[in-house]
Write a protein that binds this DNA or RNA. Sequence first.
DNA 1: CTGTCAATTGACACAGTGTCAAGAAAAGGA
DNA 2: TCCTTTTCTTGACACTGTGTCAATTGACAG
Lengths: 182, 182
Amino acid sequence: MLEGGDANAIRMGDIAKEAGISRQALYLHFPARADLLDATARYLDEYYEIDKRLAASRAAETGIERLDAFIEAWGNYIPKIYGMAKAFLAMKDSDEAARIAWTSRMEALRHGCRAAIRALNRDGTLSPDHSPGQAADILWTILSVRNWEQLRHDCGWSQKRYLSVTKNAARRILVNEKGAGE
Amino acid sequence: MLEGGDANAIRMGDIAKEAGISRQALYLHFPARADLLDATARYLDEYYEIDKRLAASRAAETGIERLDAFIEAWGNYIPKIYGMAKAFLAMKDSDEAARIAWTSRMEALRHGCRAAIRALNRDGTLSPDHSPGQAADILWTILSVRNWEQLRHDCGWSQKRYLSVTKNAARRILVNEKGAGE
DNA sequence: CTGTCAATTGACACAGTGTCAAGAAAAGGA
DNA sequence: TCCTTTTCTTGACACTGTGTCAATTGACAG
């Protein structure tokens, strides 16, 4: 027996066929697989206006509301980019260009996490258990694509449950109990 | 330019060379890569006595102590199996046998999570926000190798910090506030 | 008509997994 | 010691997918 099912096997040839062009024409536009993924990512970002959505969470009055809005925005974006993200995650261990592209995307998210934590801190509602930097790391980790994948796919959760549990968890971990009640 | 650095590239040939035998002799003992990984996993389990360690957490008096002990045991086991786990995680999307082997290991962990949650539930200290099943899913997700990897590697946390923050987070999310103070 | 640009076909290098066949070593028993 | 069985070695090969290269075709513009 050779290979079994290659779950997320999206080969360059498949994409070319889907696009109705030859494999080599695809390489003409995207020199390497990572370039194609990167372009796809940029396209999805624009199409779904992720920057605008994340920025909108900045409009929240309190740090706590902002945290919720941030999680909501990102959490609803994940399913849209999941296919691409999975391809990136699979590639990043073996391809330097893919690693760099993915890391830069994740740094952008991390930036948003830091900003949300800063808002909590300004309100005095950041849990005294964590420094702002550490709190941002925690939020960033909670919001990872892998956690979304595990809860939605392996645990069979609905998107709604994912969101509500994630928001609840983030609050419990990051927000100071006093004054955390809505 | 061809490939860049293949971070976790442990080829069959490398292992054979390391073991001082030919690549084909390795295939004689382990028909496929997944078999080798599986055997390695079993060996590490025995060597580090993971079953015993996880079982020891059962001895805790209260559900809360048990939760801490469980996280401590598993959290300290992750660094020992990380190399193998990473290889499994990279393979599981393209190799059915690897997927099955890894899933079965993760099911064992999930089992332990469910047992820990049951202990909390018996004590009446499980957070009313979650059903036992849902709470077990959350704990299982918190304890994922990917989260350990992200916090330790990407965020540069120490193992000590990883453990204390993880324990703290699990308590805050899963334990009913009343009576949670040590 | 001619130059340019994009796409096509087809071949090839490369890396890594897994398979196969023939022969060399090392045991182990009579 | 001789013979048999098992284990390992060498070397070749099939297969898959990425990325490269060269020669060719077709369209469109000046």
